[in-house]
Simulated scan of single mutants.
Amino acid sequence: MNWIWIAIRATGLTGYFLLTLSLLMGIYSHIPKKRGSVLAFHQIIGQVALLFIGIHAYLLIFDNYEPFSVTELLIPFSASYEPVLSGLGTLAAYLLIIVILTSDFMKKVGRSAWKKAHYLVFPLWFMSAIHGTFLGTDTESLWAVTLYGGSVLIVSMATIFLILKKVSKKRKARPVVT
């Protein structure tokens, strides 16, 4: 049994699952009276997701089937194996680092910059979903289709909820002209 391959898949899937959970908790924190502990959980889960994603990338160096060089891991779209899909994974990891760092240093970067950087979580999550769905070796398995398809459905619905909530909030804040 190829333990490296299993560890690569397990860390990648775990990182994706935790990233999805963190994103959903971030959206959930916009529900009144649900902020406090949800935000702390959201932040920690995002950081743990980055840890698993980092381990996933590191283990690719030792893969027996298609080993990646450090350069291929660090420079998006430079991999010899599936350069576009691999590059999306690399870009998503970089964007996640930006989101986490701006969150950790929100007071220094300012709330406006933090908020703009934080919205990068949506494209980075989408790139992660594409990366895992089309590059993963288990993609045709029922459990993988359920994981990726279900997460896309749930995140899409939660994002629509968040957008509608923000639009509704802006409409209520506008003065009525008579």
Rank of each mutant, 00 (worst) to 15 (best):
G149A: 02
V84Q: 02
A93C: 09
I8T: 02
Y148H: 15
K116C: 08
L24M: 08
T90Y: 10
Y58N: 06
V121R: 05
Y65A: 06
I100V: 15
S22P: 01
S156A: 15
G46H: 04
V177E: 09
S22R: 00
P123Y: 06
V152Q: 12
I55E: 07
I98R: 06
K34R: 15
I27G: 00
T90S: 15
F122S: 04
L162W: 15
L120A: 12
A113D: 10
G26N: 10
S29Y: 08
T159V: 03
S86K: 09
H118C: 01
F122D: 01
A129K: 09
W5G: 03
L21K: 04
L74S: 09
I4F: 02
L147A: 12
M127W: 11
H131V: 01
W114T: 07
T178G: 08
L124S: 15
F122N: 05
F62Q: 13
D104E: 09
T159Q: 00
N64I: 07
F17Q: 08
S22F: 00
F122V: 11
F17W: 10
T139A: 14
N64T: 09
S103D: 09
I6W: 06
V155I: 15
R111C: 04
I53N: 10
H30P: 00
F68I: 03
I6S: 06
V177C: 01
S128C: 09
I97R: 11
F68D: 10
H42I: 00
S141W: 02
Q47A: 08
L51F: 14
L50M: 14
Q47K: 11
V109F: 12
G12H: 01
I97K: 02
L39P: 04
I163L: 11
Y16L: 15
Y58F: 15
G46V: 03
Y148D: 06
K34C: 04
G149D: 01
R9E: 11
L88D: 05
V109G: 06
P175N: 10
L162G: 04
Y148R: 03
M1S: 13
V177R: 06
L142T: 14
G150P: 11
I130Y: 00
